[in-house]
């Protein structure tokens, strides 16, 4: 079987809050099903790859300083990323990665970092670094075709607006802006979100949705993924949903 090919961009810089755990989880869920999965890395010193040759492109979250450093590197990738998106490659982006794929990010000091411009939203950080959306968060998404509660942790200063199709409705927490109704951005082949935790840790159905999409682009696509024993994950979800939603 042909492996699922993942490109993990700037793993050396966008790796705050355990976001690389998402890669470990996807790899784990592939391995348990005997699906080969290869993860390659791209960083500032790499040659620009053929982004369209991957099934999934992943960016995690990072600190302001690191975001500044790599926004200088993004222009050389921008055409390739846009083409890959149009070709149907799946994009998964967390926090800083989410912000950088938009039009621009204005940091707390007022510096404007241009984004890749793949999507129309933009992000503005409040002048005070103390003002941040921090806490456990539950978002209800319908991306899988039925309502699904996604549990994670948000920690961002940036306020994102201009989102045309959010990832989900906020059931508990802040979302794209302080006290907003919606969180993240999504489309047929993109999920962009502020959720750490990491995102996929307590949301195995979301992991499988992404893997199913990646496999669906090939001729020998399986009907559906083999089920896995998610007892621990489901118990963990039940405990957290009970705690966060009962208020």
């Amino acid at each position: 079987m042909k492996p699922i090919k993942i490109l993990h961009m700037y793993a050396d810089m966008l790796d705050l809050y355990g976001d690389s755990g998402n890669m470990e989880i996807l790899q784990y869920r592939c391995k348990m099903r005997g699906i080969p999965c290869e993860i390659e890395h791209y960083s500032r010193t790499s040659e620009v790859p053929d982004f369209s040759s991957y099934d999934l492109i992943y960016l995690g979250g990072g600190a302001d300083l690191e975001q500044q450093i790599l926004s200088a590197d993004l222009p050389r990738c921008s055409e390739g990323l846009k083409k890959a998106y149009a070709d149907g490659v799946f994009f998964l982006m967390i926090c800083g990665g989410y912000q950088l794929m938009g039009k621009y990010y204005r940091d707390a000091d007022g510096n404007e970092l241009p984004g890749v411009g793949l999507f129309d939203y933009h992000t503005i950080a409040p002048n005070s670094r103390r003002k941040r959306c921090i806490g456990n968060i539950v978002v209800q998404t319908e991306i899988t075709g039925e309502p699904l509660d996604i549990i994670g942790f948000e920690n961002h200063g940036g306020q994102t607006s201009g989102v045309t199709s959010p990832f989900g409705k906020v059931r508990c927490g802040n979302g794209n802006c302080f006290q907003s109704d919606t969180e993240g951005y999504c489309g047929k082949n993109v999920i962009a979100t502020y959720l750490h935790g990491p995102l996929l840790a307590k949301n195995p159905k979301l992991s499988d949705y992404i893997l199913t999409y990646c496999l669906s682009r090939r001729e020998d696509a399986p009907e559906q993924l083999a089920p896995l024993d998610d007892t621990l994950e489901n118990e963990c979800r039940a405990v957290m949903l009970e705690r966060l939603l009962k208020k």
Binding site: E24, F153, N155
Partner: peptide, 9 residues
């Protein structure tokens, strides 16, 4: 810290 994401590191 309320965030347990660090255990993934």
């Amino acid at each position: 810290g309320l965030d347990v994401s660090w255990i993934w590191d």
